[in-house]
Amino acid sequence: MELELKQIASSKYSKIQDLKINRGTHLIYKKLWKKVYPVIEAENDVNNQDHTGKNVNDFIETLGSIDFQGDFFRYPTEFNHQYHKLSNAIDPINVLKCIRAVTNVLEGCDAMFDHFADDEAEMYTEN
């Protein structure tokens, strides 16, 4: 997910470039998703009753609350060499399925922004 968000952050689409996202961060929710999500929602069909964006937002926000330093899923221990601990048990298979689904949505958003960037480039060359 982090890599997909960084791929989106590197988009040539003007609305994404205007965000000036730091792609060196590991804070998926705070530094990547919170900046990209409003652009995704703005480009979504307002008449669409699909709640995919909200569901993805909720999932990434939940992961952000678990991994608030960006290292929980990257390293087996905290900086003080204590193993990471969860306050509640999780179903790793379900988490994996959700991450795959979110990654698919993010790949679709990346393709959409690439298309928009191509349209912008074409408009600039026509003028």
Rank of each mutant, 00 (worst) to 15 (best):
I90H: 01
S87P: 00
I90E: 11
T125F: 10
V95E: 14
A121W: 05
F113L: 02
D110P: 01
H115T: 10
I90K: 01
T77G: 12
A117M: 01
G108W: 05
P76A: 13
L86G: 06
F79G: 14
C98N: 11
R100W: 15
N94D: 14
F79E: 15
V95P: 00
D119M: 13
S87E: 08
A117T: 01
N88S: 14
K85L: 13
Y75Q: 11
V95L: 15
S87N: 07
H115S: 09
E107K: 12
I93A: 15
M123R: 14
N94E: 14
D119Q: 14
Y83I: 09
G108H: 07
K85F: 11
A111V: 04
N104K: 07
A117R: 02
C98Q: 08
T103W: 03
L86C: 00
D119F: 09
P92K: 06
L96E: 14
E122K: 03
Q82F: 05
V102L: 04
K85D: 08
I90F: 03
T77Y: 10
A89C: 06
E78H: 08
R100V: 15
Y75V: 09
E107A: 08
L86D: 02
Y124E: 15
I90W: 03
D114M: 03
C98T: 11
E120D: 04
E122N: 11
Q82I: 05
I93Y: 07
S87R: 04
A117H: 02
V95Y: 01
M112Q: 13
K97V: 08
L86H: 01
D114G: 01
I90C: 00
E107M: 07
D91F: 04
M112P: 00
K85G: 06
A117G: 03
Y124I: 12
C98D: 10
V95R: 04
P76W: 13
V102M: 04
A111P: 00
C109D: 05
K97H: 12
M123P: 02
T77D: 15
Y83N: 10
N104D: 09
M112I: 09
E78P: 02
L106C: 03
E78M: 13
H81A: 10
D114K: 01
M112W: 07
F79W: 15
N88I: 12
A121I: 11
D119H: 07
T77Q: 09
L106T: 01
N88G: 06
A121Q: 12
H81S: 12
H81W: 10
I99M: 14
T103H: 06
Y124H: 08
R100T: 09
Y75I: 06
V105C: 14
A111D: 09
A89N: 09
P76G: 13
H81P: 02
F79A: 15
D91N: 11
K85Y: 12
K97R: 07
H115M: 12
Q82G: 04
E78C: 10
D114Y: 01
V95H: 05
K85A: 13
F113N: 01
I93N: 13
S87C: 07
